[in-house]
Design a protein around this nucleic acid. Structure first.
Ligand SMILES: NC(=O)c1ccc[n+]([C@@H]2O[C@H](COP(=O)([O-])OP(=O)(O)OC[C@H]3O[C@@H](n4cnc5c(N)ncnc54)[C@H](O)[C@@H]3O)[C@@H](O)[C@H]2O)c1
Ligand SMILES: NC(=O)c1ccc[n+]([C@@H]2O[C@H](COP(=O)([O-])OP(=O)(O)OC[C@H]3O[C@@H](n4cnc5c(N)ncnc54)[C@H](O)[C@@H]3O)[C@@H](O)[C@H]2O)c1
Lengths: 213, 213
DNA sequence: CTTTTCTTGTGATTATTTTCACATTAACAG
DNA sequence: CTGTTAATGTGAAAATAATCACAAGAAAAG
């Protein structure tokens, strides 16, 4: 089984690039084209494909449509993936309003809030009281959830979600969630991402091209 | 020079954990404590410290205050880091409103928008016309910027930012930005992060503890 | 039909990151 | 003061990931 997250992320990027290449009129692509589009080497592209048994034509490259379909199947984009959001603050709202998920077969079916004043069943994505979450997860067999609650509430929220059947979590709270091995947790810590940029900028040697600016 | 991003992210995590441990009354910590808090091994903690010349006491561990200070210095948290945001839509607004950056010495000093209707010099963080951005960057020696504009505008925005002196970018647009080697780009692609969770959930074998749910 | 050209697919190699294993030493107990 | 214990610090080893190098085969050219 492939456990390399970077590899999966690259597959997603290839898929996105393919989409752009198709709109440019490409019918076939070479590993070079994808490599350039994504910013990796062509060997990396072929190696990634090789891991998933994706084959092309010697000298003929890959058919855009066939490749797209294979990638979509691998990435679960052949069917709609239902996702819930917990915590309708700044981040939760941004995600819920974002229209870009639809075309990726990701559907935010409901949001859950502790603050009753923010709840409403009339919005495009219903905002429900967090107490209803476990039942909702069970009834709708939801497997993926996004945590956008304050850090102090995050672990408890995760426990409830997992208890109800959630198997994968995208977590925006700046803490390391603890859970059993069979649940996937992907932590997106924006402060850390920014801090890492800051570190590298402060550390990087000043070169000719940046010195005078 | 350390180029391992994961290592820098771990340093940030250690720093955050230290803060929590201190509020719990810890004066000294062992590599074990930090390892547990962050979810890595204690060897990893010591190895990371070793790379930066951080030393503790045999049998005595590390003094919380001294360690915090060293980490803060390495991570550039000994002084305020000024950052700008470009694109005041869903994500840009969420980041600009977020109060958690302050305590991390990260200050969003201004936001820039193409839509004049969204601009205002009276908000807590001024929202300025994007035309003013290059001048602002130069005048205030801004080195770090966040891109939260639609994908089609992202590369152009990056070019303008870099041209004016920006050295590091946190990019939320779902495209691979191209730039010279001496600029740090950290791409946060939320769709990809979610897709990777979806992939692993769909792929992971169903175990005893998850089967019945 | 034969040769040349171009691109895939992958084993081998190299590089990077993590883990192991243990020498070292400070603190403590007796 | 001496032995024991519990931690650090770091080379060596292992695991993981990326790159290299090239055989193989399809398409195009001659
Ligand atoms: N906004 C950002 O730019 C940003 C940046 C970095 C990290 N984060 C992190 O992301 C998370 C969300 O940030 P935010 O700015 O959206 O916060 P926020 O305070 O705006 O929103 C949190 C929301 O969660 C709700 N909530 C609280 N407890 C809950 C519970 N138990 N169940 C359901 N809902 C609950 C609150 O009512 C609120 O609406 C936080 O952990 C924050 O640290 C946010
Ligand atoms: N919101 C999300 O949850 C989410 C999720 C995944 C990816 N993204 C990506 O993040 C980026 C921002 O997303 P969003 O939802 O905030 O979009 P949005 O459309 O809400 O906001 C974009 C903002 O940028 C402004 N803008 C456009 N061109 C500009 C320019 N050249 N200079 C300055 N400002 C400009 C627009 O006026 C708008 O206010 C997009 O690239 C999107 O694909 C967002």
């Amino acid at each position: 089984m492939i456990t390399n997250k970077n590899c999966i992320i690259r597959l997603s990027r290839y898929k996105n690039s393919l989409h752009r290449l198709k709109t440019l009129g490409f019918v076939k692509v070479f590993s070079d084209n994808l490599a350039d589009a994504v910013g990796v080497t062509s060997e990396q592209v072929r190696k990634d494909f090789s891991l998933f048994g994706i084959t092309g034509n010697k000298r003929g490259g890959y058919t855009v449509d066939a490749l797209t379909e294979k990638l979509n199947t691998i990435l679960g984009k052949d069917r709609v993936q239902n996702v819930i959001v917990v915590g309708l603050g700044n981040i939760g709202t941004a995600l819920t309003k974002y229209r870009g998920f639809e075309k990726e077969c990701i559907k935010i079916t409901a949001a859950f809030e502790a603050d009753a004043a923010k709840c409403s069943r009339k919005t495009a994505v219903p905002i429900l009281p967090v107490e209803e979450m476990p039942e909702y997860i069970r009834k709708n067999s939801i497997k993926i959830g996004i945590i956008a609650v304050p850090d102090v509430a995050a672990q408890q929220t995760a426990d409830i979600m997992i208890g109800a059947g959630i198997r994968g979590i995208l977590n925006f709270a700046p803490i390391s969630l603890r859970c059993s091995e069979d649940v996937v947790i992907n932590n997106v810590n924006l402060e850390l991402e920014l801090e890492s940029v800051i570190y590298f900028v402060n550390t990087m040697p000043v070169t000719e091209s940046t010195a005078s600016k």
